[in-house]
Nucleic acid binder design. Structure first.
Lengths: 328, 328
DNA sequence: ACTTATGCTGTAATCGTTTACGATTATCTA
DNA sequence: TAGATAATCGTAAACGATTACAGCATAAGT
C-alpha cells in the first residue's frame, strides 16, 4: 500500500506537509501544495482512514440501530439518514437488533469501539438509556420510541394524537366495536394504545379488545384470527404498524371476511402496497423522510456542539383515508 | 478511555501479556491470566478496534453494496447477510448506490479505506470490475448481477430459465399478447428479457412490447400507461422486479383494468404484499435468504483462502402461481 | 554439572496518520 | 537595519493495539 510516506518522498517534503495539504488546515505554499497534489495523483494515494481515526479519535461514520430493516418504516428512515449523512461526507452503519437487548448492547459497543461519531437509535423498552453509559461517550438521537431520559435528543411522532385521530376516523365513519393490535416492545405501542382508548372514551365506548403482540406479520395474523373466533366480534381493527396490518389483512382474506363491510381495517405506516390492495388501506402515515433527516441533522448539531441542550422534536402523522374504512 | 496500558498496570504485567491473554494465542501462566482477566473486568476494558485494525491491517466488517435498500429484494438479502455475518462475529456496512457508478466507487473506496474484510456487491452495468483494481485489494462476491470477469465469486439466479418459466406459465394459461418490463441498469434485466423472448419464440409468438426502464415504481407506472394507450394492447404484462410490478399494478388499478380478465400480471420477486392484493400476484420468487447466506459464506471462504479458485453459484427461482395470471 | 529445551514475560518496533513544537526563512515595522 | 511577526515546513511524539525478538527462569537431557 502506498502510504503518506511514499507521497512525502515523491514530493520531496515531510509527511507533515502532505498531511497538512490533504487536511488543508494549515498554510502551505502554493507551489509545494501543487507538488504534493501531483504526487498524490501520481501514486493514486488515499489516506488510511483507520490510522486517521486512531489518531484523531473520531471517525466520519454514524450508526443507525433499529430492530429490523425489513420493516418498511425503518427502511425508509434508513434511506433518509443515509442520504442526509452522505451529503455531510458521513457513512452509515446499519444494525439490526431484532428487538433483542443483547444485540442492542453489542452493536452499541461496536459502534463505540469503532469511534462512531454518533448514533441514531430506536431502542426497545428494556433498554434503559439511563442505566447505560453510552450517552456520555457518543452523541445520541433517539427516534420513534421515547425514553425516559430528558437528556437525549429525540425525534418522535405524536403517537397519542395520531392514534386518537385514526380511531376517531373509524368512529366517525360509523364503526363502534373497535379492536386494537399494538406492538409490545416499545413505548410506541403503549402510546398509540392510549390514543385509541382516549378516543373511545370520548365517544363513551369501550374497546372490544386491545392486544399487545410482538410486531411481526405472524402475530398480526394470529391475533386477528383470535379476534374473529372470539365472543365479541369487532367491526373494525386498528393496527399499530404495517407488519401487524399485513398480518391482519392476511387473516381477513383467509377467513373471507369482507373489508370494510364486515370489518374495517386501519393502521399505522404508509407502505408500497397500502394503496395496491383492494380495498386500499386507510393509514396514519408517518413522515419517514422527515424523521430520518431531522434525526440526522440533530445528530450533526450535537456532534458539533456537544453541550447544546437536548431537543425533542415531535412530528405529526398524516391520515390517508382509503377504502378499508369507508363509511358504513 | 481505559486502554491496554491501564489494564497492564492494574494487573502488574506488560501490555504484551494483556494482549496475549485477550487474543489468547500464546502460553500464559494460569495465575497471570486470571489477574489480567480480573483487571479487564474491573476496569470494564474493551480493546480499541481501530488500533487493532490498524495494526492487523484488517477488520471484522464486510460491506454490502446495493442500489437501494428500499427494494424488498435487497432488504431481504441484507438481512440474511447480516445474520450470517453476525454468527461469524462480523458486522455489516450497508451502502446504497442509487444505481450511480460514482457512488459505487465512493463506497468501494470507503470500504477499502476502512480495511473491510470483503464486499458483497450488486454492481450496475456501467461498473466494470475488470477496469477496477478493487479485486486485487479486497475479496469480492458479486450477487444478483453478473459481471464479465470470471475471476470473481458470484451468486446469481438462473435468470433466463426463471424468465422463461414465468413466460411459459403465462402462455400455458392462454395469454398470447405479452409485454415485458425490464430493468435497464443491470445484466439481470437483459437476461430476463432473453428468457422472455426465448419462450415466446418457442411458442412462435412475438412480444407486443419489451421496455427497458429504470427499476422504480414510477417507471413501471408510466410504462404500463403507455402500453395501455399503445396501438397493440397486450393481454399480459411480465415485470422484472417488484418495483416495476407495483407500478404496473398501480396503473392498472387507476385505469380500472381488471386483472386477470383484461390483463394478466406476473413479475419477479416475492414481497409482503404480493399475496395481499386482489388478485394476488403470480411471481417468480428468488431465494433471497439463500442468496444472502451463500454470498456471505463464499466471502468468508475467500477471506480465509484468498487463492481459492472462483466459484459461480447459480440458484433457481420458484414460481408462485396466484390469481393475477389465472387461466383464461 | 553443563548444555539444551521450554515456558513465560517484557521491551520495543510497528501499523499510517495528525499535530505540538521548533526551526528556518521571508515580510513588516519603526 | 535591527527586531518583531508571520509564513512555511520538518522532527518526533502521540493514538492503542499486536508481535518479533530477547531474556530469564525452570525443567530436562546427557
Amino acid at each position: 500500500m502506498t502510504s503518506i510516506k511514499d507521497v512525502a518522498k515523491a514530493a520531496g517534503v515531510s509527511t507533515a506537509t502532505v498531511s497538512r495539504v490533504l487536511a488543508n488546515n494549515a498554510p502551505i505554499k502554493t507551489e509545494t501544495r501543487k507538488r504534493v497534489l501531483e504526487a498524490v495523483a501520481q501514486l493514486n494515494y488515499r489516506p488510511n482512514l483507520i490510522a486517521r481515526s486512531l489518531r484523531a479519535q473520531k471517525s466520519a461514520k454514524i450508526g443507525l440501530v433499529v430492530s429490523d430493516i425489513r420493516n418498511p418504516f425503518f427502511t425508509a428512515i434508513g434511506r433518509a439518514v443515509e442520504d442526509a449523512s452522505y451529503e455531510q461526507g458521513y457513512s452509515v452503519l446499519m444494525c439490526n437488533t431484532d428487538e433483542n437487548p443483547e444485540k442492542e448492547e453489542l452493536y452499541l459497543n461496536l459502534l463505540h469501539d469503532e469511534n462512531a461519531a454518533g448514533v441514531i437509535f430506536s431502542p426497545t423498552q428494556q433498554f434503559s438509556l439511563a442505566s447505560s453509559t453510552y450517552k456520555t461517550k457518543m452523541p445520541f438521537v433517539i427516534i420513534d420510541r421515547a425514553v425516559e431520559s430528558k437528556e437525549t435528543d429525540m425525534v418522535l411522532l405524536d403517537n397519542i394524537s395520531a392514534a386518537y385521530d385514526l380511531t376517531v376516523h373509524l368512529l366517525e365513519n360509523g364503526y363502534r366495536k373497535l379492536a386494537g393490535l399494538f406492538g409490545d416492545v416499545s413505548t410506541t405501542g403503549q402510546e398509540r394504545s392510549r390514543g385509541f382508548h382516549k378516543a373511545l372514551k370520548d365517544y363513551q365506548l369501550n374497546p372490544v379488545a386491545a392486544y399487545f403482540v410482538s410486531p411481526r406479520i405472524q402475530q398480526g395474523y394470529d391475533a386477528t384470527l383470535s379476534l374473529l373466533n372470539g365472543p365479541d366480534h369487532p367491526d373494525a381493527i386498528l393496527t399499530s404498524n404495517s407488519l401487524l396490518t399485513a398480518g391482519a389483512l392476511q387473516a381477513l382474506r383467509d377467513k373471507k371476511v369482507s373489508i370494510p363491510n364486515e370489518m374495517a381495517l386501519a393502521g399505522f405506516d404508509e407502505t408500497t402496497w397500502g394503496e395496491l390492495v383492494d380495498p386500499p388501506i386507510t393509514v396514519m402515515a408517518q413522515p419517514t423522510e422527515e424523521i430520518g433527516r431531522t434525526a440526522t441533522e440533530l445528530l450533526f448539531q450535537r456532534i458539533r456542539e456537544p453541550s447544546r441542550s437536548p431537543k425533542t422534536i415531535i412530528l405529526n402523522g398524516t391520515l390517508m383515508v382509503r377504502g378499508s374504512s369507508a363509511k358504513r
